[in-house]
């Protein structure tokens, strides 16, 4: 009982004097600075673009569409029949021949290989560099 009363006294003391302590205030431009930071963060989120942009998807679909259109136009078909696709026009484009006629000198080949190697090295090196910088 004695101990309980003493606890009450201590509690009353703490309550009385802690309540008198003044609350602290952050700097005057705190809210403005914070809102700027939030805005900047938001822009960062907005700037994250998808791997394939809308234009990219449009391009991909239009190529597919054109290929299908060409192949289905070769024959008349009814609504109930599955369209019979004819891709025989593709070899006529002679894409293979482009590569067959292409000759690459050894110098160019070595230059490209070296360029590729350096690029890979840079990717690895730069990634480490930036990782450390933003730690």
């Amino acid at each position: 009982m004695e101990n309980h009363n003493l606890q009450k006294e201590i509690d009353a003391f703490a309550s009385k004097y802690i309540k008198e302590i003044e609350i602290e205030s952050p700097s005057l431009n705190f809210t403005a600075t914070l809102m700027k930071k939030i805005e900047a963060n938001q822009k960062k989120v907005l700037n994250q673009e998808p791997l394939i942009s809308k234009k990219g998807w449009f391009g991909i679909f239009s190529v597919i569409f054109i290929v299908l259109l060409f192949s289905s136009k070769t024959k008349e078909n009814s609504v109930f029949e599955m369209p019979k696709l004819n891709f025989s026009f593709i070899p006529s484009l002679k894409i293979n021949q482009i590569f067959e006629t292409l000759s690459i000198s050894n110098t160019t080949l070595i230059a490209f290989l070296l360029f590729g190697g350096m690029l890979l090295f840079q990717l690895f090196y730069l990634k480490n560099y930036f990782d450390k910088r933003f730690e």
Binding site: I23, E24, S25, P26, F30, T31, L34, M35, I38, E39, Q42
Partner: peptide, 21 residues
């Protein structure tokens, strides 16, 4: 409305700052 957040900040900044301090 991101700006509405400023009202919440103003209401609680002293309380949060004091705790952090």
């Amino acid at each position: 409305d991101a700006n509405a957040f400023a009202f919440l900040v103003d209401s609680y900044k002293k309380m949060i700052f004091t705790l952090a301090f």
